[in-house]
């Protein structure tokens, strides 16, 4: 049974996302020695069957960085960027324009590092709210069709996760603005825990 999110809950979730994206942008700027601006212009909470639709075309090629949540909060995380945008992002990170449209070992590392920082920042913010220890698994990169990647994660998680939190993420001046999505898929019990913690704060 899908939970109906109240205005307070949505506000609290927006706040968590703002804090997390601020931390992520700071960490990325420090690691890459470049000013990185990251925004979360949109957050949607949708039934998991609609996740792919919200994030783009099922057949679109994306770079996906995924990670599992370990500890008191369980579920999965997925960061996706459309193929052309990820090439631009990597060029900015690594500094050498790629001559082909495939990812080298260095590119894979660079994207995994970015994914690691973003995932860790969000998990850090969640962990603070629920006041519990949460770890993430080592991020893995997939470069494939969006639908295939999302399916894979749902199978990996094996739980009947019901609702997904999907954020649009933007990096500016890369040279242009590039957008991706960040998708949090909590297990139902974990989502409940998060909502209870939010309620307790207010």
């Amino acid at each position: 049974m899908n939970h109906e999110f109240s205005a307070i809950e949505l506000d609290a979730i927006q706040e968590i996302c703002n804090i997390a994206s601020g931390n992520a942008a700071g960490a990325l700027s420090q690691v890459l020695n470049k000013r990185i601006n990251m925004k979360v212009p949109e957050i949607k909470i949708v039934p998991v069957e609609l996740a792919t639709e919200i994030m783009g075309e099922s057949g679109a090629i994306v770079a996906g960085v995924y990670s599992r949540l370990i500890g008191d909060f369980n579920g999965g995380l997925l960061l996706t960027f459309p193929r052309e945008d990820v090439i631009l992002l990597v060029d900015k990170l690594v500094g050498s324009p790629s001559k082909t449209h495939t990812l080298s070992e260095l590119d894979v590392s660079a994207i995994s590092e970015v994914g690691n920082i973003i995932c860790a920042s969000f998990v850090g913010a969640i962990s603070k709210i629920i006041n519990k220890t949460v770890f993430i698994s080592v991020p893995k990169l997939a470069f494939d069709m969006l639908g295939a990647i999302v399916d894979f994660i749902l199978i990996e998680l094996a739980e009947n996760a019901e609702q997904a939190l999907i954020m649009k993420i933007q990096f500016e001046d890369v040279p242009k603005t590039i957008s991706g999505h960040f998708f949090i898929l909590p297990n139902p019990g974990s989502l409940e825990m998060l909502l209870n913690s939010i309620k307790c704060r207010h």
């Binding site: 370990i70 590392s109 590092e113 690691n116 850090g124 220890t133 770890f135 993430i136 991020p139």
Partner: peptide
């Protein structure tokens, strides 16, 4: 997991933000 918990501990002690790379 070990690296993350170690840095969490240090971050708490020093009142700073720390995270490990991959």
């Amino acid at each position: 997991i070990i690296a993350n918990s170690c840095l969490n501990g240090l971050a708490g002690l020093l009142d700073m933000r720390l995270m490990p790379s991959i």
